[in-house]
């Protein structure tokens, strides 16, 4: 592999996505879970941009742009919910928040 191949960024993307996923599954702090979700979104962006580069297209970059915009919206709402949660329940432990389940 003497030059940059699609496999490179695909492995990077996969690795980051899976690390993010493992984080979501194993951590209990809702803020860390939140960060893991952001990491997963970024991992997807790497794929998009990588394929755009591979095939000299811009569609992938456009998609990544949309993803970043949506991630920003998600962050705003997510942090708003976390703030409301800590104000009401005084916890950021995901296991202690069972209200939606019951």
């Amino acid at each position: 592999m003497n030059e940059l191949m699609p496999e490179h960024f695909m492995f990077l993307s996969a690795a980051l996505f899976i690390i993010g996923m493992v984080g979501v599954l194993t951590r209990r702090n809702v803020l860390v879970i939140f960060m893991c979700v952001e990491l997963m979104l970024t991992a997807v962006n790497i794929s998009f941009i990588g394929f755009a580069w591979e095939f000299s297209q811009l569609t992938g970059q456009i998609f990544a742009l949309f993803i970043i915009a949506i991630a920003a919206a998600e962050a705003v709402i997510g942090l708003g919910i976390i703030m409301a949660l800590t104000r009401q329940r005084d916890t950021v432990d995901i296991d202690e928040v069972r209200e939606l389940r019951q």
Binding site: L16, I19, L39
Partner: peptide, 16 residues
């Protein structure tokens, strides 16, 4: 590329 992605993966692992 390998250097950058290596740091990215290591610090992502450190994150969790």
């Amino acid at each position: 590329f390998n250097l950058l992605s290596g740091i990215a993966i290591v610090s992502a692992a450190a994150m969790i």
